[in-house]
Each structure stands twice: as structure tokens, then as C-alpha cells.
Amino acid sequence: MSNLDQYSSRREQAGVVIVFYRPDHACVSRANRLAQVWPCVVVDNTESASTPAALGLNARIDYVANSANLGIATALNQGIERLMAAGCTSALLFDQDSEPSTELLEGLPRLLDAELGRGAQVALIGPAYEDARLGGVAPFVRFGYLKLRRVPPVGTRPVDVDFLISSGSCINLAVWREIGPMEDALFIDFVDLEWCIRARSKGYAVLGAPGLRLAHELGGEPVRIFGRPYPSHSPVRHYYLFRNAVALIKRSYIPWSWKSTEIVKFPFRLAIYGLFLQPRFEHVRMAMIGIWHGLTGRMGPLNQR
């Protein structure tokens, strides 16, 4: 029996999915706090199997130990399926290091319900994210040819956007089957973007909630380039970023407004990796392998042997 069964008689129908990867004590504490608000599934992609008791997880949390890094897409799909089986109608998705407020945890499902009550066809709603290292609250994004269009998160009415990062977003599970799950083959990077594009291609809205914020660190420690902070990642993450970008550019349902923006960014990203990130050669090498694998259709997890 799932630990979520105890919630079956509750009026609230939202649930939480948190993806773990080598979590520390702070990650466990966050999960335990979130489980006080909504039913919660933790999907652990750590390579070594653990147990809820060993980690110190609240007994109410439904814990899934994959004993392997199956990627963010697969882990989110697993958690969402568990929530749907427990009768939840919306799913709040979080990385293990996200710091959602109680206002966000309660406000996003409420906003989603309000929009659906107005007759809107909504797939996803999410907050503006705030990373103090990168200059504060980030704008929402609409695709534009050669350059993304920034939408300031002001006011209280939800705004139509082209995509949201997965962490902090709230999915309308009533349309999950029609849109389909996150794409396992992408593994990580652009998983959320591809799902949002697919949802919009089927006529569903992706909405930003400008009145809500999520404290979320995007990537590793930023590097400063000409005085401006720029998010950094490991060479392996840059492999996935380039590979998946190339793979998506090849697809007909992906809009050319996004494709053109990514193509323009390629040389600038490679220059940044080669000049400002250490080890420089490894960052560029992994990016180039990613481009090759994207062109040749090699997807799924990277085999580093």
C-alpha cells in the first residue's frame, strides 16, 4: 500500500513530487516540511539504494528508490504516476534544493483551480523564480526570433508564457495523459521546455504566476563575465544541454522562434565555456560530443566509459 493512501479522504487534490540525487540533510528537511502541506512523493535517483528511515524522511512520504540515476524526466514521471494513482488532480514539482513557501504551496493549486473554473485550458502554472546569485527575480519568457522576449513578473493575474522550469511548477493532471509524460530520452536539460511546447501544441496554456516566487538556484556557482553573473554547470551537464538543444532543433513541432534563439546562442556558449570555465578543454569537448550525439540521434543517459 502506498503511503499516499492516507490522503484519499482529504478534500485537497494537489500533491508534491521531489526528485532526490545524493541528498543531504537539508534536502530531507525540505521534503519533510513539504509533506506537512500536501501528499508527497520523493523519487531518489541516487545510485546507492536507501530507505526512508535511513534518510530521516517523514513516514508519510511515499519514497521511491531507483538505485540509479534515471534522469529528471523519468523521476518526475514516476512521481506523477504515484500521485495520480492516489487521486491527486494537480502535481507540484520540485528539485531537492528548491525552497517553496507555504504561500506558493497553497497558492499555485488555488490559482490553477481558479483558471480552470474560468474555462481556461491550462496545462501548467508556475511562479517567477528568484536566484540571488544571478541578480534576483527572473522574468518569464516568450519565444522570439533570434532573442527571447522577457516578460516582467508584475501584477497578480497569470500571464501566458512559452515555458516554465519544472521546479516549482504545478501540472494539471487532468490533461497529463493527453499531453503525455516527460520525455525520458532527454534525461536532463530542456525536459521542461519540450513538455511545455508539446502542451501548447495541443492547445493548452502555460501560465506564469507573477505574484508568487520560488527561491531556486539555477545551475552551479555563477561565473562573472564582464561584470555579469552567468550560470555555470559541469561539463557533463553541458553535454546534455547541447545534445538536447540539437535534438529539439531537428523536430518539426518545435517553433522556429525558439530554434533560432538557440542557434544564435551556440557560439557564445562555446566561447564562454572555453574562456571562463575550468577545465576549459573538457567543457568544450563535452559540448562538441553533445552536438554530435544530437545530430546522430544518440539519446538517453551518457555512457562515460
Rank of each mutant, 00 (worst) to 15 (best):
C88N: 01
C88E: 01
G87I: 12
R110Y: 08
A91D: 04
A114D: 10
L93Y: 00
S101G: 11
L112W: 03
D97W: 12
E106K: 15
A85P: 00
L92F: 10
L112K: 04
L112M: 05
T102G: 00
E106S: 12
L105G: 02
L92T: 09
C88T: 04
R118T: 12
L105C: 13
D97M: 11
E106P: 01
E115R: 15
L93W: 00
L108V: 05
L111D: 00
D113G: 14
G87H: 10
G87V: 12
S101V: 07
L104S: 02
L93D: 00
F94G: 01
S98L: 07
G107Y: 04
A91N: 06
P109R: 03
T102L: 12
L111Y: 00
T102W: 03
L108A: 05
A114T: 13
E103I: 09
P109A: 02
L108Y: 05
R110K: 14
E103Q: 14
R110H: 13
G119A: 07
L92I: 10
D113S: 15
L92W: 08
E103T: 12
S90F: 06
L108G: 03
G117F: 04
L92D: 05
G107W: 03
R110M: 12
T89V: 12
A86L: 04
Q96N: 02
A114P: 02
G107C: 02
G107R: 09
S90M: 09
S101Q: 03
D97T: 13
L93K: 01
S101P: 03
S101K: 05
T89S: 14
L108M: 08
E115W: 11
S98N: 11
D113A: 15
T89I: 07
D97N: 14
S90R: 08
C88H: 01
G119D: 05
D97I: 13
T89H: 13
S90N: 09
L104Y: 04
E106T: 15
A86I: 07
D95Q: 15
L111H: 01
A86H: 02
A114Y: 07
P100S: 07
L108P: 03
D97C: 11
G87M: 09
P100A: 08
L112T: 02
L116Y: 08
A86D: 00
F94E: 07
P100K: 06
L93G: 00
D97S: 13
L104P: 04
E115P: 08
G107N: 02
G117S: 08
L105I: 13
L104I: 08
L112H: 01
E115F: 10
L92S: 10
Q96R: 08
E115T: 10
A91Y: 09
L93P: 00
